[in-house]
Amino acid sequence: MATRKPRVTDWRLVVQSRLDRVRADLAALGPPDPLDPESQQWRAVAEQAAAVVEEMITHDEPRWRAIASWWSGWHIERAWRALHEAEIAVVAAGSGFLGRLPGLRARVAEQLDAEDPRRRALEELRPGEYPLSVERELVVDALRAAFDQSDFAHAGSRALRNKLIAASVVLFVVNTVLGVVGLVRPGLVPMCVGSERLPTVCPSGRAPSGADVWLIQVLGAFGAVLSAVVLLLRRRPSLSPYIMIGYQAAIKVLLGAALAVVGILALGAGVTTGLIGVASQAALLLWAVILGYSQQVATRLLDSYADRVLDQARPLPR
């Protein structure tokens, strides 16, 4: 029986590297201190959480269940939550926090506000000022609060990804229906533009055609592709477990196609009479491209929101 090759993805690489670091830190702790039973308990917690992480990153499901798992993202988020618990347990298993405090404070500061009492308690902590058990509780509480924020960000980015997918499906269905209607009943969705002073022009000539709606949609999608290229060029690399850029580009292209149809309908209805005149077929097709690119005005807010969500969820420091 042939064995299936393990899947390699960006988030698995990041989780695997941090899991290796957890195991290295566990090995560096040396033999457990019999006078510190809490340390032994935290070591056991770290080993259990590391085993869960290993199971999740090597997890393989039947193909019929893979789509549901991909949509829910349960294995990704469980891997990250278990990894965070393992990292907390490794820190708590140590016999002191003097050497770790700078890194711990920086990590907590990434997620918690400056006025958060848990962050302030960690920043004001002086090793040896309290018993080890109290110091351990302060560190664990602050780290858990910080990692909880990161885990919530993962859930938020997954929810945004799923919304983008659902919106893309709706736009695809709407565009397809419009194209089919225009193909079956030419002129039912009028794509021709004319006025008292200018001749009537249609996307495919001077008479309505079944290809008019499709042609306008294709040119509108082309205009949207130009803005998608700009998005690709300015997007920073990200190791977030949920990648949005493909779905954002799909929204732009599909919305550009729909707005091109709506815009040409507005031109044909005389909404822009006195402002915009379409004197030729080339001008009409050019306006379809421009209208497709105009979706950038609406999707710019979506791009900014997606950037904020991914910035909170990415595992690398800002």
Rank of each mutant, 00 (worst) to 15 (best):
F147V: 10
R158Y: 05
F222G: 14
A86W: 02
E54S: 13
P62T: 07
A114S: 14
G274Q: 12
A288E: 12
G256R: 12
S280Y: 11
A145G: 07
D10I: 15
E124F: 11
P317R: 05
T299G: 09
T272F: 14
L125Y: 03
L122W: 14
L164M: 01
L101R: 04
L265H: 02
T58W: 08
F147D: 03
G94A: 14
V14M: 11
S238A: 08
L198G: 09
A86Y: 13
M244R: 08
L183K: 02
S280G: 02
R23C: 11
R314F: 06
V271E: 15
A86Q: 07
L310W: 01
R18E: 08
R100H: 13
D113Y: 03
R300I: 00
V201H: 07
T176P: 10
R314P: 00
W74T: 10
W70D: 00
A269Y: 04
L231N: 04
V271M: 14
V229M: 11
T9R: 02
Q217A: 15
S195E: 07
S17G: 03
R234T: 02
R43G: 00
R185I: 04
S209M: 03
R235G: 10
R206I: 06
A207P: 00
D116H: 13
R300H: 03
G179S: 01
L232Q: 05
V261N: 01
Q281L: 07
A159F: 11
A28S: 07
P102A: 15
A269M: 05
D141Y: 02
L259V: 09
R126V: 15
A51K: 13
P131V: 02
W71Q: 03
A269F: 01
A46Q: 02
M244N: 14
A28I: 01
L19Q: 05
T299H: 13
I165G: 00
R236H: 08
D33K: 00
L254F: 06
V261K: 07
R161L: 09
G94M: 09
I251A: 04
L183T: 02
A282D: 09
A258I: 03
S17F: 06
A159H: 11
A145D: 14
F152W: 04
H154S: 06
N162K: 13
I264A: 12
L232E: 03
R318Q: 06
Q41M: 15
S238L: 08
A224N: 02
P6N: 11
A313Q: 08
C192W: 10
G73E: 13
